[in-house]
Amino acid sequence: MKAAILLFPGINRERDMVLAVRQSFGHAPQIVWHKETALPAGTDLVILPGGFSFGDYLRCGAMAAHSPIMPAVKAHVERGGYVLGVCNGFQILTEAGLLPGALLRNASLRFLSMDTMLKVERADTVFTSKWQTGAIFRAPMAHGDGNYNADEATLDRLEGENLVAFRYADENRNGSARGIAGIFSPNLRVLGLMPHPENLVDPLMGGTDGKPLFDSLAAA
């Protein structure tokens, strides 16, 4: 699995993502500046990490969704390539129309930084194969706008087509509709989620709960 990490100005969790990917993949991913117009040849997986692209000014992810690299990402998706968007990356994917819905301000109107518990809704995907369906794992979250929302029909469709990837299993702190923490595209090749599995891949940092995500991708 050859991974490329997109770097938009204001992204700040790309180093965390490099650590997690390098550990599971055995090699470092390539960093791609947002002004590039093509992905490195042979890219299997595009990762949009967390942060505050363009300062989250206008709307979270709205400006990054129009960066020069994004047409190449869309083409990659159309070719059936894999995409992982975490936190701001998830917000960018919804703004780019690659995943449905939107991330609103947290219901508390405060930034939330703490560990949350996530439930794995399905383990038959390239992102989740190292978990069991129904498994519960811990992941740090750190966001001001993680309140997932979509119209009822979209939410019904996501649930009906089994496209919910993760749900909050302990407390739905940000107010997300139906407790949704992450979703798949219909072909199960694009995943967006708010919490940060990449920050829990080392016992020294408090656990390895997030490692199965990267191990799953490495095994794909």
Partner: peptide, 12 residues
């Protein structure tokens, strides 16, 4: 809880 304490991936 309002401060991101884990960004960077090195907070032991």
């Amino acid at each position: 809880d309002q401060y991101d304490s884990t960004v960077g991936g090195q907070t032991v």
